[in-house]
Amino acid sequence: MSQLKNATRLSVASRAIAAVLGGYALSATATAALSVGLPMSRMDAVITASVLSFLIYSVAVIWAFACATTARAWAGIAIPTLLCGALVWLLGPAS
């Protein structure tokens, strides 16, 4: 679709990066956070979190493209990523 305006293209590119890389960062940190945070045995928590991770990734990608503005798309991925990262840091195995 060559009719797409340059601004839209830029927005699509930015959202694509948010979706692909940001989405992976989000699902990785969310998986880690669920693995240490879920109230089950260590192994069950890991399996549960890992099985769900691809669903989280899909939702993140769709969010990145479905959001009204590019800034909101980025924020919606970055903030949960940071929160999950903080959770892992707080709950992570005491070693």
Binding site: S27, T29, T31, A45, V46, S50, S53
Partner: peptide
């Protein structure tokens, strides 16, 4: 997605 394992099993 090895990050869950890495986090829970250090």
């Amino acid at each position: 997605m090895p990050w869950g394992i890495d986090a829970a099993y250090d």
